[in-house]
Amino acid sequence: MASSERTVLQLSSSSQNLSAKVPALVIFNICDCYVRRPDQAERVIGTLLGCVLPDGTVDVRNSYAVPHNESLGQVALDIEYHHTMLISHQKVNPKEVIVGWYSTGLGVNGGSALIHEFYSREVSNPIHLTVDTGFTNGELTIKAYVSHNLSLGDWQMAAQFQEIPLDLRMEEADGVGFDTLKATAVDKIPNELEVMEASMERLLALIDDIYKYVDDVVEGHALPDNNVGRLISDAVGSLPKLPASVFDKLLNDSLQDYLLLFYLSSITRSQLILAEKLNTAAQIL
């Protein structure tokens, strides 16, 4: 009896601890689409592809833009385009399915609810990613949302967009090098030795930092922090304690191995040059 009188505002979605992982490629793609948007278009939207991990995390892996038109509360989405692109993408990578959609701009607006409804028909519980390419607050705001339907009985009242935690994964971008991706123009891709040098320099800088910190603490300039101390001691402890003679032997053995390989490949190269000369010079008259 009591239950029938109570009107329940239901949250229809169950997953509460949803989060999203977004790789740098998707952000790049969105920015590129935004730069190439048609005249007068205020924002670009597109489909996010990826998969849902067993723990409920949405792993976004790819994206493509979908042309659309927005005017006075009406949204026209090129659904045919969306489907063609989806089929094309799945030919390459069948494991990537629709997980949601993205839009540029800050936050959610009226049109978003309509588009979200469309994507809800494509996949259950899609996520919505917004990238504020306009730097509206002078900040770069990237947010992910899921939508909850507020329903009164069977009657849909509204959709509520709830923000979910977002994890920007930068490993791929890291592989290319942030310095390369950050600049508008880089003359050449750094080669192996240059990146190695940069890494070594960073390592040395870190060691210098640690020295400085330890010296400061010892001399009483800085407040000691037990956690930092423990981490430093772990780092030092991870170096194997070896007697000098054993270490030298190890080092020299490896050095010799590498020198041997070096020698071998150099000798192969000179043989190649020689063989080539003999081969093309050889002719029977």
Partner: peptide
């Protein structure tokens, strides 16, 4: 090969660049 990026991407990357002094790449290299 030269690499170029649009000004927007350059701005976004500058904002997003993580502040960790060491990256996975450094570990791999060393």
């Amino acid at each position: 090969i030269k690499v170029s990026n649009s000004a927007l991407i350059s701005a976004v990357m500058t904002k997003l660049k993580p502040n960790t002094p060491v990256t996975q790449c450094d570990y791999d290299r060393l």
